[in-house]
Design a protein around this nucleic acid. Sequence first.
DNA 1: TAGTTGGGTTTTTTT
DNA 2: AACCCAACTA
Length: 772
Amino acid sequence: MSIYDTLNEQQKKGVFTTEGPVLLLAGAGSGKTRVLTHRISYLIDELGVNPWNIMAITFTNKAAGEMKERVEKLVGTGSDSIWVTTFHSTCLRILHRYSDRLGYENNFTVYDTDDQKTVMKEICKRLQIDPKKMKERSILSAISSAKDELITPEEFEKSAFGDYRLQQIAQAYKEYQTILKKSNAMDFDDLIMKTVELFRTDPQVLKGYQKRFKYIMVDEYQDTNTAQFELIRLLADAHHNLCVVGDDDQSIYKFRGANIRNILDFETVYPEATVIRLEQNYRSTQNVLDAANAVIRNNRKRKSKTLWTDKGQGSPIHFMEFLNGFEEAEFIADDVARKNREGIAHYSDCAILFRTNAQARLLEERFVIEGIPYNVVGGTNFYARKEIKDMLAYLKTIDNGSDDLAIKRVINVPKRGIGATTVIKVQDYADLHEISFYDALRQAEDIPGLGKASGKLKGFVNMIQVFRSKQEFYGLSDLIRDIIETTGYVRELEASGDDDAEGRIENIDELISKIVSFEEIHNQPTLREFLEEVALVADIDNLEGGSDKVLLMTLHSAKGLEFPHVYLAGMEDGLFPSYMTIASDDQEELEEERRLAYVGITRAKEDLTLCYAKMRMIRGETQVNAVSRFVREIPEELMDHRPSSMGSGFKREYEEENPFGSASFSRGGFPEKGSFKPKASAGPRKTAIENKPFIAGGGVGALHAAGIAKGVGAVSGGRPSYDAGDRVRHIKYGEGTVTDLEPGPRDYKVTVDFDEAGQKIMYAAFAKLEKV
DNA sequence: TAGTTGGGTTTTTTT
DNA sequence: AACCCAACTA
């Protein structure tokens, strides 16, 4: 009896087909991680492959860690030397060794999204790009997409010919790369792209890695982008022992450059590939699976597959309707508490999944009130928090003097009387003499016009130098404590009296613990290694197992995880699928949302609850939304309740107001504005309970009143000021021509042919049309 | 230089 | 609602 006997036939094929390219199409819950771990163990134990020659690339550090653990259990020894990591850590490791061949120093730092923005802001100023015409963010995302496709600044510029906007982006891209290089820094996308560049320009280095990695496995292959594909192709080029695992139905990272063709065209690139399908699901009940299949069936572009399970039918899919988000949160908290009380589930058996991070807050507040232990994954990454970034900036400054951004971040934090003007003068001097910002600081007395500031700069430089020299004598945790002590960072927080100071100090303490445990794990812990590790942690990576807590996270974060009890919150058209995708002409975008729904549903092992709130406050605006189309795609016989058509009749009445089946109004529209609202300054943070009467009391009637109170467009019943044939303007759709105007049961129904948005039918009172 | 305030904006998702 | 920025004040 061997460990492989427990595998099904397809899984066995996946394990034993070790030579040549393999495409493993693995449906949700079909045991692909099992195949991968057994495959690795088979290679080592049965075929005598040196663990050193095996590489497995996963999506998150957490997945990598888990895989390592599982392999360790299967194989006796040697699993340490298997290279199991993410794309980004792999590249970072390689580049920290060889990036000097690309003209970087090997101790370059990694810029996160925040840093990128800071750099881009500077560039926009310099290139005089009007921030109203083109936002930094859109430039950055254009650059990011370019890098995902391995397009260099030069190539970008060539293809931008004739398009002013693109030319500007090309300029910014070029400038951006120059600044990053000068700062000895790379961004996330650079890590992949530069590694490919390294492999392409330095065959020697590539050969070394090709020789090492005789067996390569890639998990979540459907979410790889073009650059990652090329990276893998290069690495596998010598041996072709490449096994990729993925599920096109779970591709949810198109916005990050994921190229679904990588999985769909695998057989074209590698004609000799063995294709294996894993279609037996070991995770979920038949009901959950049927629901998932019913939803995903509506997508057109997919490699069709049929998931099946020999588990029983299971409980029906629960569907719950609520008036608003507060009630939704209340129910979910109550239900989780009930399951815990009745011994149906531990807290850690439950997960609440949602489309947007912002939805976490309401749920969180309710969980606090009910005293239910929970953890929120995501939101702001721990290492992206202000106080943590400040601490890291000190560490980076000490480690890498050319990271201008880090130095500028902390040069006046805590306040040292070094203002913006001084920083600009130093930068000018640095530019003039073509030296780094830090080197300019060291020559502060030579910089003209600094006056008293020069002494302050000297003090700062001195402090950094002292930290650097002390490093020889004490460890990392001593260093961070020294920084906190010397700079008085925490003391200032304590004195500030800000209500978030306490939380920030807690975070800093958390950072200290992380550094301490880093020191414990590593034999020779260096600052560089710590910064390297920290640069690429995702939020999900920090999740410690073992504690009995409910998990709250986005659907994206939930990928690859499973829970006995899953709640999908916010199943509303306009939220999920998002407003943007519904409005988009591109069918593909909606399909990606549907795949996300598929991912969400298939996280559930036993019990799935779908929640819908009729009204929801989004960005300070209350929206009325229809039940998500994804819920409606699930056959009624699988559910315990079926979606009502919004009892009050309100919904039906205004369904045609816009094409999304949702109405929205602003809180400002309430005549009694402020009368319900607790004063923000008085007492502790508002709780869900305090807020609730405001929303619930508002109710449908208030909604109606709000629309009319706003007094925009025609008043219900009266004939609008425009008529068929008139030109009108709509706040969202722009200008158009009225093609029809007819009296409805309560209001005039107006049909407008918009120049941009096409034909829409809406109620006059809510359309807020303006005659032009 | 530092702190405050008012106004404008708003990736949905993340390595 | 929350965040970020610019302008203003002390």
